[in-house]
Amino acid sequence: MDSLELTYQVPGDDFSRAGEASSAVKRTLKTLGFPPDLIRRIAIAMYEAEINMVIHADGGVVTARISPELVEVSFADVGPGIPDIDLAMQEGYSTASEQVRDLGFGAGMGLPNMKKYADDMTITTTVGVGTTVLLQFQIA
């Protein structure tokens, strides 16, 4: 059985639009009858990832691949890249600007939360080139 693929652009300059890809994927998963708790985990992790793309990378492309056994979502940006992934994974560590923090974002919980809610997370990054985060969710 081949998978279903959905693609969304995340605009870089608009916090209020972050979450649109998450909501669209969520709607599709609900239509398809995925379990509510899994959908919630996916929604939360996707929203964090979308916010990250807006804060750090001027947006990017979200691709969700849905199959009955696995939901895979990749977030690809052409932002600054992550120089030290271990450091970036620490709770509370953030390189967000003061302005972004004033908006209530950049608490340094984005990547840790994505890891927490996904079954598997892979980060591919090159400084100056961009970052791709791949989240995988297994259907029990």
Binding site: M1, L4, K30, T31, L32, G33, F34, I66, P68
Partner: peptide, 11 residues
Amino acid sequence: LRLGGSIADAM
């Protein structure tokens, strides 16, 4: 708003 059947059927 769910399509009926298994996930594979719904897909």
